[in-house]
């Protein structure tokens, strides 16, 4: 059964140009062309529920997420592995759909899925399907981008609207359902990052996934020992995302994104980097949201719409819909 599943479903679906995804237990890859660079490795496990949501599914999410984790280190993503935990009884047609979107996402991001593993567990031991992807990429020599690189005087750029992914998923959750044209922003960001690096200096990058933009900014501030001031009126939020957040009592600042990044860029480079971002399809709505300051170190402040100032904190626990 497992053998058939792998040979008839997984291999044909995921196999790329490279002959390495096959029956061997390891993919053996050459990194010769990247001499002088450094290897970036990452892994992440995807358990999103529901598995299918407007704008994507767990498959493309698993590819894009790992591609983006590599990209945020300035790495050029090259190879992915994929591990599947499938609950017994999970529809094969759904699995095929998920694999197909993984392949498409990998092609779009120009990466190859080179090794895989599948386990089927008893009904009730998993929630439909879980996917782990690991990724390898190369950081070109001389490039050093981390989440700790913020410097006072930098400006902060976000690559588009926030909260789309989280609200797209929530819109399909049992008991909370609402109709909207909100779609997940799930997308690979390696192309955008390449364009940005070509355009100018980048001091720090991160993709604001779980915990939303707020959590990323708080991590930025505390890891770099700097202060951050953002302007509430500059935050890009799509109207239906705002509406849905209002209905459920959520704050888009804390809602997950899967195809956005925040960059800290020296003021002198901001204009050219921003222009380069806006030329890329996934960065068309890029905008400056704030700046990096020396004090108060470790804190994120927000200038509110009405001109007040307040602290932005990390999200504690999952954001729950509230009536009150």
């Amino acid at each position: 059964m497992m053998r058939e599943l792998i040979e008839e479903l997984f291999l044909p679906a995921l196999k790329g140009e490279c002959a390495c995804l096959g029956s061997d237990d390891s993919a053996v890859l050459s990194l010769a062309e990247f001499s002088g660079g450094r290897l970036a490795l990452t892994t992440d496990t995807y358990v999103v529920s529901p598995v299918f949501f407007p704008g994507g599914n767990i498959g493309d999410l698993a590819v894009n997420g790992t591609v983006n984790d590599l990209s945020m280190a300035g790495a050029r993503p090259l190879y992915l592995t994929a591990g599947f935990v499938v609950e017994e009884g999970f529809p094969v047609a759904d699995l095929a759909k998920i694999l197909d979107s993984m392949k498409k996402a990998a092609d779009r991001a120009d990466v190859m899925i080179v090794a895989g593993d599948t386990k089927v567990v008893e009904h009730g031991k998993a929630d439909g399907i879980f996917i782990n992807t690991a990724g390898a990429g190369m950081v070109p020599a001389g490039l050093d981008i981390t989440a700790r690189g913020l410097k006072p005087g930098d400006v902060l750029i976000v690559s588009g609207t926030i909260g789309d992914h989280g609200m797209a998923v929530l819109s399909k959750r049992e008991g909370l359902d609402f109709e909207s044209d909100i779609k997940s922003d799930s997308a690979p960001l390696n192309g955008l990052v390449a364009d940005m690096i070509a355009a100018g200096d980048i001091n720090a990058l991160r993709d604001p996934t779980r915990g939303g933009l707020a959590s990323t900014l708080v991590e930025f501030a505390s890891e770099s020992g700097v202060g951050i001031v953002i302007d509430e009126s500059s935050l890009p939020v799509r109207e239906p995302v705002r509406g849905a957040c209002e209905i459920l009592g959520l704050d888009p600042l804390y809602v997950a994104n899967e195809g956005k990044l925040v960059a800290s860029v020296p003021r002198a480079a901001a204009k050219t980097v921003l222009a380069a971002m806006r030329k890329n399809a996934v960065g068309r709505e890029s905008t400056i949201i704030g700046e990096v300051v020396a004090e108060p170190a470790g804190k994120v402040l927000m200038k509110t719409i009405i001109g007040g100032t307040r602290l932005v904190d990390m999200l504690s626990g999952e954001q729950l819909p509230r009536i009150c």
Binding site: F178, E179, S180, G243, A244
Partner: peptide
């Protein structure tokens, strides 16, 4: 009723 809140329908 179907109610529109900024484009989100509930």
């Amino acid at each position: 009723a179907t109610v529109d809140v900024g484009g989100a329908m509930r």
